[in-house]
Amino acid sequence: MTRFNELLKHAVLLFGALIVIVPFYQMVSYSLKSPAEIERGIGGFAGSQALMTDEQCVGRNTPDRSDVETARTRFPGQDDSHVLGQLLEEVRAECQVRPAVFNYTSAFSEAPLLCYLLNGVIVTLSIFVIQVVVALPAAYALSKLRFWGREAVFGMVLFCLLIPVHAIALPIYVGLAKLGLINTYAALVVPWTISVFGIFLMRQFFMTVPDDLVDAARMDGMGELAIVWRVMLPTAVPALMAFAIFSVVAHWNDYFWPRMVVTGDRSLFTPPLGLREFKADIDGSLYGPMMATATVIVTPLIAAFLLAQRKFIEGITLSGMK
């Protein structure tokens, strides 16, 4: 009976894991396959990796009149159309690539993906750093300082948690537009710098830090700001990591806000905007390169969190204080 229960549990969990994993699997799989394989749904995970012709490469290198003129010596006694045919054959042969290579190279060459990734890093890191700079002192004040109206301020923080961002997007957009900040990094960063969620999360964590620790720091000669950065910040690393996951994932993957405030200037595109470059147009959908782009976009996140995982679990226990 218990055996059956165990099996059932695992079956349910496996099913859940599958639902989460399948889209990722699909994404990575598509990023490796040739368009033909994607269209017909064959080739398993990695496809056959048979050589395919890169039509765009062919398009770029199509021989013209001058090529024919210079090549005539190589094909003595043949007429122009024949020479042209031969040259085209050569070009096609040169443009043979493996599908995986094709997908990833076009991900980086069709759109300035590196630039987008860099933008993503700049924007998410700026947002996170400023959020921390704002949230830590605020959370410290709300949890450890006694001042008139503290509960009211905390009530307001809770209230702000309930406001959906999309509801206030338009007023913020208008405000930024009036300030002439549309199409700048500032427009991507500034609206997110005050994170009430961050304040709330850190405040809840600081409540668990013993008051004696703060008092000890005061006796040791620290001012209030020194206490925030020298005592509270290091003890709050596990909570900060949790907040970092929320913040970085949300802003790295955000499509809505960059789409609103970055209009046209491709040098400010963040990675999710980069995906749009591959949306279907006249030559049909380029699913392969598109999925390769998506894979490239999510990889830094996954790598970062695998690296941070250890730190996350270890944390710094507060046990040293008692």
Partner: peptide, 16 residues
């Protein structure tokens, strides 16, 4: 911080 006193706390309060 400016009173020039040292204090030992009941809970030790060491920086973890």
């Amino acid at each position: 911080a400016d009173r020039n006193l040292s204090m030992v706390f009941q809970s030790y309060a060491l920086y973890p």
